[in-house]
Each structure stands twice: as structure tokens, then as C-alpha cells.
């Protein structure tokens, strides 16, 4: 891991996310270690890297679902289990098929009070407040028009907007998204990334998105966390996705190719581990 300058680490205000020499293992196997990085409040950051490198594990660690084996991890200056109310989470998932007959609006509502015991009373005093909040968040993600339809009947892109609305409904300060662009067509990938950027800019929400391919989101991102070889680096895409940086990280010869329209392709000696970047 590239150590950042100490003055930068203690710079303006509180970091949204701060890892210091952090390590995680699963079933006794080290996933990544020595990770030191800092994400500023209001940044839009993508987490990139080959399959199985521990991108989702990083999300789990931020959520406090997986303890660190070494080092520290702070979310807005707090340990993860105390920061749960500040986080919105969109898990990696397959799309809902047509048998899922729950209304999209009800799915969003689960993000608001789905973890509460007991039944919501039909004429409870907070009912209007809840309806107003649902309308508001559905408006933010541009899903108001189809919120009354069963979620299984919506397209992949529409479902993803609904899930983002659910993750946002409690007004989190950080939005964690695990592969939200997977199985979307290119147009929808760009649209969801633009939505993430807008949420980031207009609501001041820090967005951390695990992504498969950097190209559809390259123009929207502030920085990338690139994970490989059991560790990670963070920086602006043009700083991190370079032949030198990635060769050092993978500990293998890696070449980064840039097409005339600015797209990046990572190629190297371990094609099955890396070539996913060139899938389009």
C-alpha cells in the first residue's frame, strides 16, 4: 500500500472512511492486509480489481459485518458497529424475477422500517411522514413513475434505482453499493453511475461502489480504490490505473492501454485474473 502523506491524512475535517494498516481474513485465509486509505466526505469512489480479491469483503468490513484481523477502520470517525445508522447498503444480488410481486414502493419502505418488530398500524400517526419520505426518495432516484408496480415487472435498471432508493431512504451519509452495474446494459450502467454522482454532489452522500468495469463510470468518479495482490491503492483513476502502479500491485507485468476515446483496458500475464476489464 502506498502511504499517503501524513499531513493529508489529518487534513480538513473528518474522513468518511479511514483504514490504517487494516487486514481481513476469512476461514483462516488472509484476504487483504496492510491496507491504508482515506476517503473524504462527499467523494464518489469506485472499488476495482479482479474477482475474489476482496472487494465485497471491504464493503462487509465497512458495514461492521466482518471484523478486522489487524489495523483499524473508522467510518466518520467511529468504529463500524457504531456507524451503522450512517450507512446505506445495496448488496450484490441477482435481479428480482417476475414472481416477485411486491410493489417497488413496499420494497423501498423495508429500508425504512423493515428491521422493526411488530406490525405497522394502518392509521399510525407517523404514516404521512413515512409516505412523504418514500415519495421524496423515489423522486431523487427518478423512480416515482413506476413505484406502484410490482418490482419483478421492472427492468434491471429500474430495479436498481428502486434498490438505491431503499438504501437512501433513511438519509445515510455514505452509500455502499456492491456491483450495482452488474447485468445492466451499457446505457443503464452510465445512467446509474450518473445517478450515484448526482446523489453524491447534491445530497453530499459519500458513495463507494464496487464495479466490474471502470469505463462506463470513469467520467463520474472522483477516485478509485484498486485492489489486487492482497492489498489496495487509492487515487484518481489516471494515477492508479497505470502500467507502473498496477504492475507493482499485481507483482506481475501489467499494461494499461488507453483507447482514443479515453477508455482504459488492463492486460497482463494472468489473463483469467485480469482480462475482465476488456470484456466490452
Amino acid at each position: 500500500m502506498q502511504a499517503e502523506a501524513p499531513d493529508q491524512r489529518t487534513a480538513t475535517g473528518m474522513a468518511a472512511l479511514q483504514l490504517e494498516d487494516a487486514a481481513v481474513s476469512r476461514g483462516g485465509r488472509s484476504i487483504w492486509k496492510g491496507v491504508t486509505l482515506r476517503v473524504e466526505t462527499g467523494e464518489y469512489v469506485a472499488v476495482l480489481g479482479p474477482n475474489g480479491v476482496g472487494k465485497s469483503t471491504l464493503i462487509q468490513a465497512i458495514l461492521g459485518l466482518l471484523p478486522l484481523t489487524a489495523g483499524s477502520l473508522e467510518v466518520f470517525g467511529r468504529p463500524p458497529h457504531e456507524a451503522a445508522s450512517l450507512l446505506g447498503y445495496l448488496p450484490q444480488r441477482h435481479s428480482f424475477d417476475s414472481s416477485m410481486r411486491l410493489r417497488a414502493r413496499d420494497l423501498v419502505r423495508l429500508g425504512l422500517d423493515g428491521d422493526r418488530w411488530g406490525l405497522p398500524l394502518p392509521f399510525a400517526p407517523g404514516r404521512r411522514e413515512i409516505a412523504r419520505r418514500l415519495d421524496e426518495v423515489l423522486e431523487v432516484v427518478g423512480a416515482a413513475a413506476y413505484a406502484g408496480r410490482p418490482v419483478g415487472e421492472l427492468s434491471g435498471g429500474e430495479q436498481q434505482r428502486i434498490l438505491i432508493a431503499r438504501a437512501l431512504v433513511r438519509g445515510p451519509r455514505m452509500l455502499l453499493m456492491d456491483e450495482p452495474l452488474e447485468s445492466l446494459d451499457l446505457g443503464n450502467q452510465q445512467a446509474i453511475s450518473a445517478l450515484a454522482r448526482d446523489i453524491c454532489r447534491s445530497e453530499g452522500v459519500t458513495v463507494i461502489m464496487v464495479a466490474h468495469d471502470v469505463n462506463p463510470i470513469l467520467g463520474d468518479l472522483d477516485r478509485v480504490i484498486y485492489m489486487a495482490g492482497g492489498s489496495a491503492v487509492i487515487g484518481r483513476p489516471e494515477e492508479v490505473i497505470t502500467s507502473e502502479k498496477l504492475s507493482a500491485l499485481y507483482n506481475a507485468h501489467i499494461e494499461v492501454l488507453r483507447t482514443s476515446d479515453g477508455r482504459l483496458f488492463v492486460v497482463g500475464q494472468q489473463p483469467e485474473a485480469i482480462s475482465y476489464h476488456a470484456h466490452d
Binding site: 458495514l63 459485518l65 444480488r93 420494497l107 423495508l110 429500508g111 423493515g114 428491521d115
Partner: peptide, 23 residues
């Protein structure tokens, strides 16, 4: 069922999200 209905609905629809929400 009245007691567990809401979290049960959440976990039936989306287990990872429900687990992350503390269900």
C-alpha cells in the same frame, strides 16, 4: 407472526440487505 412479520418480509425479499440492517 405479528411480532416477526416485518423483518421476516424483509429477509424473505432480500436476505443480504436485511442481515446488514441487523435482522
Amino acid at each position: 407472526l405479528a411480532l416477526i412479520g416485518r423483518p421476516l418480509l424483509y429477509l424473505s425479499v432480500d436476505e443480504p440487505a436485511a442481515a446488514a440492517a441487523g435482522v
